[in-house]
Amino acid sequence: MAGVEAPCGLIVMGVSGSGKSTIAEALGQRLGWRFEDGDSFHPASNVAKMRTGHPLTDEDRWPWLNAIADEIGRVCGRGEHIIIACSALKHTYRDVLLRGRDDVRFVFLKGTKELIAERLAHRKGHFMPPGLLTSQFDTLEPPEAGEHVITVSIDETVEAIVDGIVRQLKLGGAKR
């Protein structure tokens, strides 16, 4: 990759329905990096709780966040790259995910509640019911500049969003 040194990991974050998995997977394909959906790290008890329409508590989230942080550590320790889709809604969650690392960046997918609610209404086969969107926005603490974050609007095509992220990372691979 041309440009500056690449981070070893990217965490594509935002509320449910913001397009984390779609964007993270497309970004992984563009950069040739491994993609993992953070949802796959949830214990079964978390998935069951969300399926029944109950929001997760911080206590529910700690094992999940630590499992993701462990995976980032393993991959980065091998000198490889990973992109993980993970809501990472609070500053404290992002701190757990980073574990003090400065070689992991966040990509915040920012969108309006109305746009995301519309997307959720058409999504099929996901355990997160649309009714929990309000709790997601209530929990969200948007990342600040000091959190190694790239913020992008979700009000564009997947390709345009990925192009914007790659340009901001200065890694090359953005379509012109």
Rank of each mutant, 00 (worst) to 15 (best):
I154R: 02
K90M: 10
A67D: 09
A26F: 06
K20L: 15
T151D: 02
V149C: 00
L10E: 04
W64Y: 13
A2C: 10
S87H: 00
G32K: 12
V152Q: 08
A160H: 08
R99A: 13
Q136Y: 01
K124Q: 13
M128L: 01
L109H: 06
I165N: 00
N66S: 14
G9H: 10
R105F: 12
A26D: 06
G53R: 15
I150N: 04
G17V: 08
E144Y: 04
S135H: 01
N66M: 15
E59S: 06
L109F: 01
E36S: 15
V166A: 08
W64R: 14
R74T: 12
V104T: 02
G53P: 11
R123F: 06
E36G: 12
Q29A: 13
D39I: 14
H54Y: 09
E36D: 15
G9E: 12
D58C: 09
A2G: 15
G79N: 09
I84Y: 01
V149L: 02
L27D: 03
S40D: 05
E5Q: 10
Q168S: 13
A6I: 00
A24G: 11
V152D: 03
G32H: 03
E25I: 08
G173D: 03
G131M: 02
Q168D: 08
V107D: 07
M1D: 11
V152M: 11
L97F: 04
R101I: 05
I165K: 04
P142R: 06
D70A: 14
F41L: 15
